[in-house]
Design a protein around this nucleic acid. Structure first.
Lengths: 207, 207
DNA sequence: ACCCTCTGGATAGTGGCTCTATCCTATTCG
DNA sequence: CGAATAGGATAGAGCCACTATCCAGAGGGT
């Protein structure tokens, strides 16, 4: 198929497709000759992936480009998934300006939960976030952290057993990124509802 | 104090302060005469609130303005807190384009958890989000939802008992918004870590 | 009294981001 | 043969959150 059909099938304007081509998000089509190119199903799924990462997950062009270049560059799957997690959950923008905490509380959580004690982005980010919260004067007690970690342990267990990894790279990123984002948002919304519910109950009791 | 001192005390440039004044985020100072105005401590805390909402929570000018106008307009505290929750957790941007679900799963959660059965933004947003997930082909089983809701129930209980409401309106919004955001991010990061941990363990076992 | 500094008000410009539009020539399908 | 399309290049649009400049009036320290 050629550009116009690709545009029609995906609902993305030709101008935007050209833009994505320029930015290197979308690989060039097979060049039939100087003024005609042939696009494949791969381009369709790639374009759908780009759309989802933009519109649903809310990543910017640079982030998407970085992930896709890893995927196309033959990065090992586990590394790719780690990068997806970093990007989707914003584990990157760690303001390391805050001096290290005396006792990295995140590490304590790991030990307490008996999670495998290996360094990870998630863990660094957690430690940094706890430091940030402390520096902003938002208290996080060990009890609270234990309650949180127990809860997410449950969630992660439920979540991971409901996951399958597809073969296609586009599909893999799609599933991982969109799933991660949507599950994260789901937890946030449930938390909001739970919080509201508890607040109402407390208010009723005390009123 | 006058504008320049306000600027120096808060680290916000005079130009930005003028901008916030224009946008109605910051109330005008007491006008001593046509070319001199007097700002108070209230302006300092208001400016700090604006900075936190921008830099930490990531709200935009319009969202901040809306919250502050409610606060200044004498909106009841519970309504204000509800608005803060809506804004901070992005409960607003509900794409209602997806037709209603046959069985709003969020309502089922409420009944199952025995949470007070009153409509709320959080609940509408949850239902909409579940519909979105379904429409994107991301499965959410009842079991998963039960596990999630139990976990957040624990979290919310732990969280709400560690909360106090200050008297000052700026303080109230600050505490609520920043706290809500940071706790939400904390849960997300813990979830990422838990997810990673479970994945590692599963990988080790199966490898 | 003088001048440097500050004020509110107005208006315009900046830089980042994501597109979107226009113009061009070469080519090719119908 | 001609309407349509391709690639390439470049410019513009529209949003956002500032940031800068200019102005004239007024103060306050010396």
């Amino acid at each position: 198929m050629q550009l116009k059909e690709l545009s029609e099938r995906t609902g993305v304007s030709p101008a935007s497709i050209k833009f994505y081509l320029r930015e290197g998000l979308l690989p060039a089509g097979r060049s039939v000759h100087s003024t005609r190119a042939e696009y494949s199903e791969h381009h369709v799924s790639r374009l759908e992936l780009i759309q989802s990462l933009r519109r649903v997950v809310g990543l910017n062009i640079a982030q998407i480009g970085s992930l896709l270049r890893m995927a196309d560059g033959g990065t090992p799957r586990l590394d790719l998934l780690a990068a997806v997690q970093r990007t989707v959950l914003g584990l990157d923008d760690v303001s390391t300006e805050h001096g290290d905490l005396r006792t990295p509380a995140g590490d304590a959580v790991v030990r307490f939960r008996n999670w495998p004690d290996v360094p990870s982005d998630a863990r660094n980010s957690l430690n940094a976030h706890l430091a940030l919260m402390e520096s902003l004067g938002v208290p996080v007690t060990d009890d609270l952290l234990n309650a949180y970690s127990q809860a997410v342990d449950t969630i992660a267990a439920a979540n991971i057993s409901a996951t399958t990894a597809p073969d296609d790279v586009n599909q893999l990123i799609m599933t991982a990124a969109v799933g991660m984002h949507l599950h994260g948002q789901l937890v946030l919304k449930l938390l909001a509802l739970a919080h509201t519910s508890h607040a109402i109950r407390r208010y009723e009791t005390h009123a």
